[in-house]
Amino acid sequence: MAVLDQSSDSMSPAVRPTRTAGRLSLRRRATRAGWPLLFVAPFFVLFALFSLYPLGFSLWLSFRDWSLNGPARWIGLANYRALFHDSLFWQSMLNCALLFLVYVPLMTLLALVLAVLLNSRYVRLQGLWRTLLFLPYIMSGTVAAAFTFQLMLDRNAGYANKFLGFLGVSPVPWLDSTWWARISLGLLVMWAWLGYNMLIMLAGLQAIPPELAEAARVDGAGPIRIFARVTVPLLRPVIVFSVTLSIIGTFSLFTEPLLLTNGGPANATTTPVLQIWQNTFSFLRVGYSAAMSWIYFAVIVVLALTQYVLVSRRDRYLEARR
């Protein structure tokens, strides 16, 4: 058994191959016995039961008229046809797109810049800054955060306008105009997720060998040039990952618009999820909501795929040029 003793360092190299082969066969035996499949099975069982089946069920429902009560009546494509003309639903999609433009570019850029700063030796107390910037993550998507922002952004009593008044800026109708409401919502989401995205970028940065930036510096490149020509291109996969998360996150907003603005004013901040929720639980149009869910799902998949294709095509292009 001494051969198998882990702590024995003094084995001759000649023994090693046989030993490895023996162990490999053991692992193979475990594999053949189906252990790994058993280990990954819970995921697939739960996914099939609680995601795949609901997706199918939802498809089934989307061709029916059902109010949660009584039988579901087959109505063919009527839900989809009605949905096509449902300006409110498309408005909710548009809102997400607009909201995305309101905060995601700014948030991504900020996250990137902050990550670069915190990755450089330029800034001290990195741990402290990282903690402070990341802190709001623990309140992301919470009821408490939405109410706190509601109070802070109150046109009359909120501290946002008090602060602006202090700076000599006239009060802003944070929640009372369509665009300001979108901006307020964007602020809340950005507040919660900036630190998270910064961490993702920071992780990506730490995987980049420092020699690359060093070499550029030796070649006489300034910090901004290094950032634009070295850091950003190398970090592109991570940036794409972060933006993809932001797309899905923005289109999945629910708690924030429900509690901060209740989808208003004039539906400017209503989201697809709010529409699905409202149509199901307030209006009992379950089939219609199911159709909505499917369109919503399709849009997200298309967006994610589009981004993936664009990125990979660009990669191929760059590679060809290289």
């Binding site: 609901p54 199911a290 869910s293």
Partner: peptide
């Protein structure tokens, strides 16, 4: 496949899941 399931947003299944 596991990674791909990340693209299924919860909101897309909340209604049928609730009914289940």
């Amino acid at each position: 496949f596991v990674i791909a399931t990340l693209a299924v947003p919860f909101a897309a299944i909340v209604v049928p899941l609730f009914v289940m």
